[in-house]
Simulated assay, not measured.
Amino acid sequence: LTNFGFVVVVGFIVGAAVTGQIFYNFTLDNLRYFGVFKAMGATDRMLRAMILVQALLVGFVGFGLGAGVTAIFAAATRGGTGLSMTLDWQLLVGSAVVVGIIVLFAALISLRRVKQLEPAEVFKS
């Protein structure tokens, strides 16, 4: 049980770090477009909404694919050997909440960079 718990914790930490890094890199890659939006008059609130919607959409799609593959795996392994996996609704809801927290945290880190962006920096290069 201790080893299994350790694997879950390490998997959570690695998954959160990878998710945060990927979303932050996405924001950095598109920083010039956010600068153009700012130069055209977009408010920080509008840019914040854009990033949060993108983050939630990506999180929703990723969670849906992950939950679907997990459900298929659970159904495929049921009844064959002595080992089986049950996928309760509480586990899915808990996983969805954790994924939402990770995605929102990654978006907040990205928002800081976009908020500090000056539109003139984009047009210099």
Rank of each mutant, 00 (worst) to 15 (best):
L65A: 11
I13P: 03
V10N: 06
G59Y: 07
A17C: 04
I13A: 12
L92R: 08
R78E: 02
I51P: 05
R112F: 06
I102W: 08
V114D: 00
G100E: 09
G20C: 05
F34D: 02
F63D: 01
L108T: 09
L111I: 14
D88M: 09
F34Y: 15
A71F: 11
T43R: 06
A16K: 04
L52E: 02
F12N: 04
G11L: 00
P119K: 03
R112Q: 08
V7Q: 07
A107F: 03
A39Y: 08
A42L: 03
N25R: 13
G94L: 07
A67R: 06
L92Y: 12
T43Y: 04
V93S: 01
T86F: 09
V58C: 09
V98R: 04
R112C: 02
K38S: 00
G82C: 00
Q90D: 13
L28E: 10
D29S: 13
L65V: 14
S110H: 07
L65G: 11
M85P: 00
G64C: 10
A55R: 03
V18N: 04
L104G: 02
Q90G: 11
V114K: 00
F6K: 14
R45L: 06
V8W: 06
F23Q: 10
G68H: 05
I102A: 15
F6I: 13
T19L: 14
A49W: 09
G20W: 07
R45E: 11
L104V: 15
R48T: 10
G100Q: 11
A76P: 02
F60W: 09
I101D: 08
I51V: 15
F123V: 14
L56K: 05
A75G: 08
A55Q: 04
S110R: 11
R78S: 05
V36W: 10
Y33W: 11
A49L: 09
G11A: 01
P119E: 07
T27Y: 08
T70C: 05
G68K: 04
D29T: 07
G20L: 05
T81V: 07
L65R: 10
L87T: 01
L83A: 12
L111P: 01
L104N: 02
L65C: 08
Q21V: 01
L104A: 10
T19D: 07
T86M: 08
P119A: 06
V7S: 08
A55D: 03
L1A: 12
K124F: 06
V58L: 15
M85L: 10
L83R: 09
G79H: 00
F63N: 02
I102P: 13
G59C: 07
G100K: 14
V61L: 14
E118W: 03
N30R: 15
D44E: 07
V8H: 04
L83W: 10
R48Q: 13
I102K: 13
A74M: 00
V58P: 04
L28D: 05
